[in-house]
Design a protein around this nucleic acid. Structure first.
Length: 170
DNA sequence: GTTAAGATTCCG
DNA sequence: GGAATCTTAACG
């Protein structure tokens, strides 16, 4: 299977987020069954200066994973109920991550986490099939719509209005 | 040790 | 508009 290599994630998150749209997310479950999903929506979180990014508060136990070398998974529990799926980008000490906001038939990051049965075990894991999660490059070109990010009212106008949300066009 | 708030979703 | 539900960070 031609999964995306680590190189793909050692780039600026603003290049990676739109590149992931239309690609295939592969999840192997505990019982060995494999499911594939088309990625329909992503959001970019870029560095400490981005007030919407968790890393804007500095390096903590929670954000440490974003400072790692790209190509690993960042999952965290939000509101005590939903697991968010992110992929860490760029080189070490550059805190960037892409949030998977939607996959086909499951729009909304909370639903994505629920469908994929995520848990804390995925944090820091490489994005390879051996870790039960990877992405296939299908080389299909798609049309992408950009919009402001969602759920970050606390970040202030400048960052809230950035068109860093990428959506698969119909 | 206690408290406040969050990259959400569902219900009224 | 508000609750559900829990981890983390920022206090004391």
């Amino acid at each position: 299977m031609n999964c995306l290599k680590k190189d793909f994630f050692i780039r600026d998150v603003l290049d990676i987020a739109p590149d992931l749209i239309g690609k295939i997310l592969v999840r192997r479950f505990e019982d060995g069954k494999i499911k594939k999903y088309i990625i329909t929506e992503t959001e970019a979180y870029r560095g400490e200066e981005d007030l919407a990014c968790h890393a804007s508060k500095g390096r903590t136990k929670r954000t440490d994973v974003m400072y790692q070398n790209g190509g690993i998974i960042y999952v965290y529990l939000i509101y005590g109920m939903y697991w968010m799926l992110n992929f860490v980008c760029e080189n070490e000490n550059i805190p960037q991550a892409v949030l998977i906001r939607g996959i086909k038939n499951f729009n909304g990051p909370g639903k994505v986490g629920k469908e994929l049965k995520l848990n804390r075990e995925f944090n820091y894991k490489e994005i390879i099939l051996d870790n039960n999660l990877c992405i296939i490059d299908n080389n299909i070109k798609v049309n992408i719509i950009t919009k402001p990010r969602v759920g970050i009212d606390y970040a202030g106008k400048i960052w809230k209005n950035k068109p860093w949300r990428f959506i698969l066009a119909e």
